[in-house]
Design a protein around this nucleic acid. Structure first.
Lengths: 209, 209, 209, 209
DNA sequence: GATGAATGAGCCTTCATTCAT
DNA sequence: GATGAATGAAGGCTCATTCAT
C-alpha cells in the first residue's frame, strides 16, 4: 500500500487515498505547530485526526514517510506561490523585493505549515544520524536567490557577487525569512508589513553597488 | 546532590562534583552535536561518558537540569569572549564589525557547543508545550545589538533606527550568525574568513546612512 | 483507551475490552494477594497475565487507574452480596448478626480480593502523600452499621448509642471483620464458622441493653 | 559492623554506635509516619537525619535490618509501659480495662511509632513474599490477652472462653486497638478519652457472663 | 566512623509498528 | 479500507547497595 517503493507514479493513488493522506499530513502539521517535533507522536496525530493509529500506518509506510510529506507539500505550495510573482518582475531589484515580500506573506498565511517544515527539516534524521533534508536545500532553495543576485550583478544593478559571496548573501536572506517565521511563532501580533519593509530595506541596501 | 534548589551558590559544589558535571555536560553536547536533540537520551550520553545512567541522575536533578547547562555554560563563555572585544572598539561601525567577526570566530571554535545550544533552545519545552528558553532571548541576545545600532544612529554613522526597525536589524544579524552555525555543521570545510568578510560587508552596507 | 475521562458511561467499552480489563484486574489482585502491595509492579502483573507490560498501559491510563478498580469492583460485589441479606431481616439484632455472618462468608469466599483491597486502600497514596481512599470509608462503610445501631437503639433493643459511641462501635465491628481477613490470610485453615459464631456473640453482648 | 551476625551481644555496640542507630530508627519512624511505608526510602530517611545514605548502610546490614528495629523497639517500649500497669491490677476485669486504657494512651502518646509499626509489620516481607513479622504476633501480642481472659473465666468473672474463642476475643480486642491507631492518624483531633471509654464498655459487656 | 560517588536493576510510561479481524 | 489490540524496545527516573577515600 505504501508509496515508498514507487514514489513517482502517484497516479495509482485513488482519490480517497489521496484525501486521507492529505488529511493526515494536515494533522501532523498542526500537531507539530502546536507542540513541536518531539511531541508529534503518531498517537497525537491520530487523535487530532480522530482516527486510529493503525490508519496512519496503513497509508504511510512509516513515520518517516509521513513526515517527509510536510516539506514536500510545502515546497510545492511555496513554489507555485513564489515563482510566478518573481517572474512577473522585470528588474532583479524588483525580483528581490518581491521575493522577500511574497515569502513573508506566504509565511504569514501558512505559518503552521512553515513552522512544521522548519521543525521537521531540522530534526528528522536518517538512521545514521545525518539530517535528512540537508542535501536538497542548496539547489531548491538557495539557487533561485543566487540566480537573482547574479542577474542583478550582470545587469550592473547589484554589486559584484562571486559564487561564494552570492551563496552567503542568499543564505543570509533565507535565514532572515526563516528567522521571521520563528519570531512570528513567538509573537503572533507582530507587524508583518513593517517587518517586511525593514527586510526589503536591509537587503536592498546590502545588494547595492 | 543537584543544585536546583540553590542555583546561585555554586561554591558549595566540590571540585570533583564540578568536574563530573562538566564532563557530563560535555558529553551531552557531543551527543547532541552528533545525532541531534532527539537522539540525546540519558542512555546515549552515559554511554559516551562511559558511565552508568544513574550517575547522571546522581549529579543532575533530571534531564531538564542537565540540558539547561548547555545554554547557560554557552552564554557565559560567549559573553566573556564577545563583550571585551566589543568594548575595545570606539565607533559603532567597528563594534558591529567586531560583533560579527568575533561571533563567527567563536562559533568556528566552539561549533559543537553552539550547535547543541541551538538544538536545545529550539527543542526543549516546558510541560505545557512552550519553548523553554524563548523568553530570555530578546533581552540577553538582541538588546546588545540594538544598543550598538542606536548608538550608531545617535552618532550619525548609521541610518535611522526606530525601536522596531532596530529589532528587525538585530534579529537579521543574529539569524545570519546562527544560520552560519548550521551551514558550518553541514559543510565543515567552509571558508570561515570569507563568510565573515561577506557578512561584515552585508551589514555594513545595510546599516549605512 | 482509558475511561478515565468519562468514568460513568462504561457502556462504551466493548466486550473484549471489558474482559481484558477484568483479566488484568484479576491478575493484579492475585499478585497483591501473593506478594503484597509493594511487589505488585506492572511487570509482575503482566507476567502473571502472560501479556506484555504495554497491554496494561493500553487498557489503563496508568497504574493508579488499574489499582483503583480493585476497591471499586470489590465494593460493588460486596454491596450486592451484603445489602439484600441485611434488608431481609426484621430486627436490628438480626441485621447485625447477618451483617457479621455475611461479611465473614463474603471474605471467606473472596479472600484474595478482600486482602488486595485492604493492601491497596492502606497503601495507595496521592501525589501529596495522603491515603487515596481514606475519605470514602466513613460514609460508605461505617454509616450503614451506625444506622443499624441507631435503629436498634430507637427500638429499645440495643443500648444507648449517641453519635460518637455508634461510630466507635461501628469501627470496632469493621476492624473485627478486616482483622479476620488478615488472620484468614495467615491461617487458611481457620474455622470460619466458629470465628463467625464468636464475633456474633461478642457484638451481640456488647450491643445489648 | 552490622549486628546481623551476632544479634544477641548488643554489649559490643559502643555508646556512639547505639546513639546513631537510635537516631536513624527514629527518622525512619517519622518518615514512615509521614508518607507511608512505600515512601520510606533510605534516601528519604537519610535526608531527614541529615546524614548521607552511606551512613545507614554502615550502621545497618541492609534496609531490612533497619526496619526490623521499628517493631523491636516498639515492643520493648510497649511492654514496659503496659505490663506493670496490668500487673498492678487484682481482678481480670480490671486488667482488661487497664489493658485497653493503657494501650490507647500509649498509642496516643506514641502514634508515630505505632503507626510506623503497623506499616512495617503489614508490608515488610521476606524474599519469598511471606509477611516477615506474622509469626511473632500470636505469642507476644495475643497470648497475654488470652491469659487475662482465661483467668477471668477461671475466677468466674468472665463467661466461658475455650482456646479458640479466647483467641477470637483477643484478636478482636487487638484489632480494635490497632484500628484506633489508624483512625487517630486520619483524625488527629479524635477524643481519645471518649474512644477509650467506649472500647472499655464494649469489651466489658462482651466478656461478661 | 563517615562520606560522596557510582552502580545496576527495576519501575512506570510512551511509542512506532504489526496484525487479525 | 479501517480498527482495536498487542508488542517490545527505549525512555527517564528511583533506589538499595557497594566501595574508595
Amino acid at each position: 500500500m505504501s508509496k515508498k517503493n514507487n514514489p513517482t507514479n502517484q497516479k495509482q493513488m485513488s482519490f480517497i487515498e489521496k484525501a486521507r493522506r492529505a488529511q493526515i499530513v494536515e494533522c501532523a502539521i498542526e500537531t507539530i505547530a502546536e507542540g513541536g517535533y518531539a511531541q508529534a507522536s503518531l498517537g497525537q496525530i491520530a487523535k487530532r485526526a480522530k482516527i486510529s493509529k493503525g490508519v496512519i500506518s496503513y497509508h504511510f509506510a512509516n513515520k518517516e514517510e509521513l513526515l517527509e510529506q510536510i516539506p514536500i507539500e510545502y515546497y510545492m505550495a511555496w513554489q507555485s506561490y513564489i515563482a510566478p510573482r518573481i517572474e512577473a518582475q522585470k528588474s532583479p531589484k524588483e525580483m528581490l523585493r518581491v521575493y522577500i515580500e511574497s515569502n513573508l506573506t506566504f509565511v504569514d498565511e501558512n505559518w503552521k505549515h512553515v513552522f512544521a517544515v522548519i521543525e521537521t527539516v531540522s530534526n528528522q534524521r536518517t538512521a545514521d544520524g545525518k539530517l535528512r533534508f540537508a542535501a536538497d536545500h542548496d539547489e531548491t532553495i538557495l539557487l533561485p536567490i543566487e540566480n537573482i543576485l547574479t542577474l542583478g550583478m550582470q545587469e550592473g544593478i547589484f554589486r559584484e557577487f562571486t559564487r561564494p559571496s552570492a551563496r552567503v548573501m542568499a543564505l543570509t536572506i533565507r535565514n532572515a525569512i526563516d528567522g521571521f517565521t520563528i519570531e512570528l511563532m513567538r509573537k503572533p501580533h507582530l507587524d508583518v508589513q513593517e517587518y517586511t519593509r525593514e527586510l526589503v530595506t536591509i537587503f536592498d541596501k546590502s545588494t547595492k553597488m
